[in-house]
Design a protein around this nucleic acid. Structure first.
Length: 931
RNA sequence: GCCGCAGUGGUGAAAUUGGUAGACACGCUAGACUUAGGAUCUAGUGCCUUUGGCGUGGGGGUUCAAGUCCCUCCUGCGGCACCA
């Protein structure tokens, strides 16, 4: 019987759908396992072969876990709000919901063609009101809570109010935007507006005037991670700095918890490192410097208190509130001019001139808290307003930025550390945290580390400041001036924000006539009719950003149809959190931070039982495209020169043009297909080159990102139709390690296709099914169990490429042995079923089974079939000597000694020594203790 | 600049974590069966000056033993980047 994958694929995909084979139940005696893929944004371009890489891996693991006896939750959904659908809507006038739905249908078809075992009954779409009800609800809860730093969790804002009323600001330790100080009496005397202003300083969701990345072309603000090199990540439009009133989430309050729990996660070290960098914890001191002849001072943050005596000037950020307070009359004009210049500079300009320093002298001086010396106060835009206190003490001898500033403005440089490479601080700063302190009074002679501790003690003893931890992680700006996103569940009374209660949710996205800002510059929701409460209070006009809907979707899958709660206590207690999360590493600083934050917040509320959403994560690499080019003569637009000839630039002056990779085979152009590809190429002529005996047109190639415009997109459906879904799945895994990025290349696909045919043929003799019930021979069992053992080991390490190799070896060996024993083949079919489920189901049925292979028990590898015997060579020597041996496990000590002594290699190492004992550890290696 | 990851045949890659380097596959070569082969099968395939020698980016080290550990340099990828 021929291997007819077309028929088999269709048959089993229908079977799975009709029988709901992969439906997960919330009540089961089996242990649970939750495998999650990062859900896709359903773009108009459809899936290419790169997208399913992670889905295939997670599906393999899911099926494996099912066979191992787990109740596996493996859902899929769509991150359906987003910019591309809205941009398309602006161009065409079509409602984004319509195009999104069409894309979702296409995605589902493509996913089904690959044979994934998703539980589709749990599908979620972030743009469904029944889904975003809970996104909105979580937001209202963030508004109603503050972060208590003493209890280290989010608490209701009502508790804060009563604490303020009882004991003023001192009664609560809370994470706020600013430090506020007021007494209980003052609090009680504040009017409603003032009170709300204070609460906004602590609410986890709060309104604030913040400098934002404004993208005029998109008409919206963007998060820092949506901006790359001053251009928007989507579309590449310029982005400028602007101060706007925006909703923000106090993500920074969770910095330490996000950092601490990272340790316990089974994520790749590089992904953890990305998050550590992003959170950017730094320990140091906050020290007050008094301003000369004034009754105030300002605080600076430093991680190098040891260099205190090396301070030769102070620098304030242009945004610092102290600029105005300290500037002298004579310098006022110069300072004002400088501040003007800074305002004009966009974020991008500031980055462009990284090396050159700008600044201006304020005319004022600080008094050094230890030496009492006068220190000039400067303003410089290399100091950031948003980090630390917006002011620094500059130590040009030991900080390269301060050094550059000192050189630019000719300020003194005093070395305070002696160390290797620290000889010439006039030329270059010595930044290393190594060496002995000099010129530093009380610190002289101490090592840097000691000096840091000593100075911290001094600072605290003299009441000049405190130890302080700063984080780089900023609060998330949560407003987008766009249409296609979750509406905020917020209305305003006298400009003061109020939250809709849960019974009023979801607040559904209204219809608008156009998806563009209003004439007054309001976001598109400003066009909606009656966008207000029943009482006539206006709703918020912004919508939420992309990461809102993706921050808690994994919880919704547990209980997708619950209309009363995000997730029921029971469902959450059963599924807990995601055991395995598979997705691209590019979400390290976005989605993966936000969803961890969001999850921790819900945990603080007691809504869920685990504070980390994703226990283990695997980051699949990107599959790049392999583009092909043709070379058109500039002088004659109809003539194309073959690649090797076109390389001769003197002879041919050509232009490189992307050509559809689907009409190119092994870099050789299908000329007839090319003529049909585009009307303008219909009468093209070609200058060919010799390849063997024939003349061909060779194309050039390059590895690039897979994209429509480069004509290098390969669709998974095309491959599935040509070779079958199982070949596609096996091949994507066989391509190399999962986590590595690699170009797509169909060259090796024949190899795995041949393997499947070979495997199929083990069950068949010609056209007939041929299976034997005889007992398997030891040789056959060895082949089987070697394979099972390897598969078992590799499965747990996500080393799927080597697993595929193990199956190939087994198939080759069994083919050579002409083995068609049921005993051997049935185990092999189960082991192969996660990789090639369609083929496995078909063969499983042929073996006489009546239920899906996904119900079968995972075959256990038994070591007893694997023992071998042949002698090797000594492997280690340190009192004990170890020999790599392959001996029968039941060998006695005497037999081992005999084997060891009998070998020529051992003579060399054992000369003059006596063997005291020998044991087999664990099965291959003999430990010999000699003396 | 700082941090992280990697560098192995013509190609994608393996290597039990210190133990026979190159599994498996592609490609290539030869042969078989064929009217035919872009089908299938069999054998071979790291390199060289081939009774031997050399080989995991370069150099050095530890070890009986190094792709694997240590030092150093080179190259590539990813992240952060005036974060004090």
């Amino acid at each position: 019987m021929a291997y007819n994958f077309q028929e088999i694929d269709k048959k089993w995909q229908n079977y799975w759908a009709q029988n709901e084979t992969f439906k997960a139940h919330n009540d089961s005696d089996k242990p649970k396992y939750y495998v999650l893929d990062m859900f896709p944004y359903p773009s108009g371009a459809g899936l290419h072969v790169g997208h399913p890489l992670g889905y295939i891996a997670s599906d393999i693991y899911t099926r494996y876990k099912r066979n191992k006896g787990f109740n596996v939750l493996h859902p899929m959904g769509y991150d359906a709000f987003g910019l591309p659908a809205e941009q398309y809507a602006i161009q065409t006038g079509q409602h984004p919901a319509v195009t999104t739905e069409a894309n979702v249908i296409r995605y589902k078809e493509q996913l089904d063609r690959i044979g994934f075992s998703f539980d589709w009954s749990r599908q979620v779409k972030t743009c469904d009101p029944s889904y975003y009800k809970w996104t909105q609800w979580a937001f209202t809860q963030m508004f109603e809570h503050y972060y208590d730093t003493a209890k280290d969790k989010a608490l209701p804002i009502e508790e804060m109010k009563s604490a303020f009323a009882g004991g003023g600001s001192a009664a609560v330790q809370a994470w706020g935007s600013k430090e506020l100080n007021f007494s209980a009496q003052e609090w009680q005397a504040f009017d409603k507006k003032k009170k709300e202003e204070i609460l906004q300083n602590y609410r986890i969701a709060y309104l604030d005037e913040v400098p934002v990345n404004w993208c005029p072309a998109l008409g919206t603000v963007l998060a820092n991670d949506e901006v790359k090199d001053g251009l928007s990540e989507r579309g590449g439009h310029p982005v400028e700095q602007k101060v706007m009133k925006q909703w923000c989430l106090r993500v920074s309050a969770y910095s330490q918890r996000l950092l601490d729990r990272l340790e316990s996660l089974d994520w790749s070290e590089s992904m953890k490192e990305v998050q550590r960098n992003w959170i950017g914890r730094s320990e140091g001191a906050q020290v007050e410097f008094a301003v000369k002849d004034k009754d105030f001072g300002f605080e600076i943050f430093t991680t190098r208190p040891d260099t205190m005596y090396g301070v030769t000037f102070m620098v304030l950020a242009p945004e610092s509130e102290y600029v105005e307070k300290v500037v002298t009359a004579s310098q006022k004009a110069a300072v004002d001019q400088y501040l003007e210049e800074c305002k004009k500079k966009s974020q991008r300009d500031r980055m462009m001139e990284t090396k050159s320093m700008t600044g201006v002298f304020t005319g004022a001086y600080c008094v050094h808290p230890f030496s009492g010396k006068e220190i000039p106060i400067w303003i410089g835009d290399y100091v950031l307003g948003g980090y630390g206190t917006g002011a620094i003490m500059a130590v040009p001898a030991h900080d390269s930025r301060d050094h550059a500033f000192a050189k630019t403005f000719d300020l003194p440089i005093i070395p305070v550390i002696e160390g290797e490479g620290a000889q010439n601080v006039a030329e270059a700063s010595y930044d290393a945290k190594e060496g002995k302190l000099i010129n530093s009074d009380i610190l002289n002679g101490l090592e840097v580390k000691e000096a840091i501790t000593r100075m911290l003690e001094e600072v605290e003893a003299k009441n000049l400041g405190t130890r302080k931890v700063n984080y780089r992680l900023r609060d998330a700006i949560f407003s987008r001036q766009r249409y296609w996103g979750e509406p905020f569940p917020v209305y305003y009374v006298d400009d003061e924000p109020h939250m809709l209660s849960v019974d009023k949710l979801p607040l559904e996205l209204p219809e608008v006539d156009k998806y563009l800002p209003t004439e007054d510059g309001d976001p598109p929701l400003g066009r909606a009719k009656k966008w207000q409460t029943e009482e006539g209070h206006p709703f918020e006009l912004s919508t939420m950003p992309g990461f809102a809907g993706s921050s808690a979707y994994f919880l919704r899958y547990m209980d997708p149809n619950n209309n009363d709660e995000l997730v029921s206590k029971e469902a959450n207690a059963y599924w807990k959190n995601v055991d395995l999360y598979v997705g691209g590493p590019e979400h390290g600083t976005g989605h993966l931070i936000y969803s961890r934050f969001w999850n921790k917040f819900l945990y603080d509320l007691g809504v869920i039982c685990e504070d980390e959403p994703f226990k283990k994560m695997v980051n699949q690499g990107m599959i790049q495209g392999r583009s092909n080019f043709v070379y058109r003569l500039k002088s004659d637009q109809k003539t194309f020169v073959s690649a090797t000839l076109a390389a001769d630039k003197k002879k041919y002056d050509t232009q490189e043009i992307h050509v559809d990779v689907n009409i190119v085979q092994n870099d050789i152009l299908d000329i007839e297909a090319f003529k049909k590809w585009r009307p303008e190429f219909a009468d093209a002529s070609f200058i060919l080159e010799k390849e063997g005996d024939s003349e061909v047109y060779k194309c050039g190639w390059a590895i690039e990102k897979m994209s429509k415009s480069k004509y290098n997109v390969v669709n998974p459906d095309t491959i599935a139709n040509k070779y079958g879904a199982d070949t596609l799945r096996l091949y994507e895994m066989f391509l190399g390690p999962l986590e590595q990025s690699k170009p797509w290349n169909t060259n090796g696909i024949e190899g795995v296709y041949r393997f499947l045919i070979k495997f199929w043929n083990l069950f068949h003799e010609g056209e007939e099914l041929s299976l034997s019930d005889e007992k398997a021979t030891p040789e056959e069992l060895k082949v089987l169990h070697t394979c099972l053992k390897k598969v078992q080991e590799d499965m747990d390490n996500f080393s799927f490429n080597t697993t595929v190799a193990a199956f190939m070896i087994a198939a080759n060996d069994l083919a050579k042995l002409k083995c068609n024993k049921r005993e051997v083949l049935s185990d092999l079919v189960v082991a192969l079923s996660p990789f090639a489920p369609h083929t496995a189901e078909e063969l499983w049925q042929k073996l006489g089974a009546t239920e899906s292979v996904s119900q079968a028990a995972w075959p256990v590898a038994e070591e007893k079939y694997l023992v071998e015997s042949n002698f090797n060579y000594p492997v280690s020597f340190n009192g004990k000597m170890r020999f790599l041996l392959e001996l029968p496990v039941d060998y006695s000590k005497e037999q081992i000694q005999e084997a060891v002594l009998g070998h020529e290699n051992s003579q060399k190492w054992l000369e003059g020594k006596e063997i005291k004992k020998g044991i087999i550890v664990p099965k291959k290696i003999v430990n010999i203790v000699v003396g």
